[in-house]
Amino acid sequence: MIVGVFLLIAWLVLLLKYPAKALPVSLAALCALGIVAAVVAWQQTRLDHQLAGLDISLNVDTRQCPATTPLFVTVRNTQDAPLITLSWRTAAYFPGDRNDLAANDYSRPQYSAPHAIPPGEAWTTCLPVPPLRDGYRAETLQYRAEALEGSFD
């Protein structure tokens, strides 16, 4: 923080003392910073669009999954690029409600796909249900993957 303040003061002194030389350099640096910011924003928007295009289904299914891991998860890669990494947080909702019923504590698990998923392919597995607030049963709730983080090739 102190280094940043020192650099800002030094830049202002140079700009006031030598405006003919400091102004063009400052404008060039500002343009370069703007270009870098635009590229980063474009890449993040592209990644967010790709992650939003994934088909993720989470359902309690005691016929296909054991009792210890009853949450049947299907992740289908509908994008043109291979999905390299994916992690998410599972939220639980009562049908028609907008309150997340999963316990919001530090023990709440973060789920992830163990391997890359090629375009057009799907990955399925059984996972444990996140800890729920008192008074709710897992089979009466709807589940959604939220806070998606991932990367594509």
Results as ranks from 00 to 15, higher is better:
94 F>V: 07
81 A>E: 15
78 T>R: 15
98 R>F: 12
26 S>M: 09
28 A>I: 15
83 L>K: 10
68 T>F: 06
81 A>T: 06
49 H>L: 04
82 P>N: 06
31 C>T: 12
113 A>S: 14
52 A>D: 14
111 Y>N: 08
77 N>P: 10
29 A>Y: 03
72 F>Q: 13
79 Q>P: 02
48 D>R: 12
24 P>E: 01
71 L>G: 12
56 I>M: 02
82 P>T: 09
26 S>E: 01
70 P>Y: 03
33 L>C: 14
25 V>P: 00
59 N>A: 15
46 R>S: 14
33 L>F: 12
70 P>H: 07
38 A>T: 11
50 Q>R: 11
107 S>T: 12
113 A>T: 11
56 I>W: 01
82 P>Q: 05
94 F>W: 12
60 V>W: 11
95 P>E: 10
56 I>L: 08
48 D>A: 15
48 D>G: 07
36 V>D: 02
94 F>Q: 14
50 Q>T: 01
106 Y>I: 07
76 R>H: 14
20 A>G: 03
113 A>V: 09
24 P>V: 05
48 D>W: 03
104 N>P: 05
48 D>E: 13
78 T>D: 10
49 H>S: 14
27 L>Y: 05
33 L>R: 05
97 D>T: 10
73 V>A: 14
22 A>G: 04
31 C>Y: 04
67 A>Y: 05
40 V>Q: 11
64 Q>P: 01
34 G>H: 10
79 Q>K: 05
89 R>F: 00
31 C>L: 15
93 Y>N: 10
97 D>E: 13
44 Q>K: 13
50 Q>V: 00
54 L>G: 07
62 T>P: 02
102 A>M: 03
61 D>G: 10
111 Y>V: 06
100 D>T: 09
67 A>F: 07
111 Y>G: 06
111 Y>W: 09
76 R>I: 06
95 P>R: 11
100 D>G: 10
92 A>Y: 08
89 R>P: 00
77 N>M: 06
63 R>V: 15
100 D>R: 13
32 A>K: 01
44 Q>F: 03
44 Q>E: 12
50 Q>E: 11
111 Y>H: 09
72 F>Y: 15
101 L>S: 09
74 T>F: 01
31 C>G: 11
31 C>V: 15
63 R>D: 14
105 D>H: 10
115 H>N: 09
115 H>G: 02
26 S>A: 14
99 N>C: 01
114 P>N: 06
47 L>E: 13
67 A>M: 04
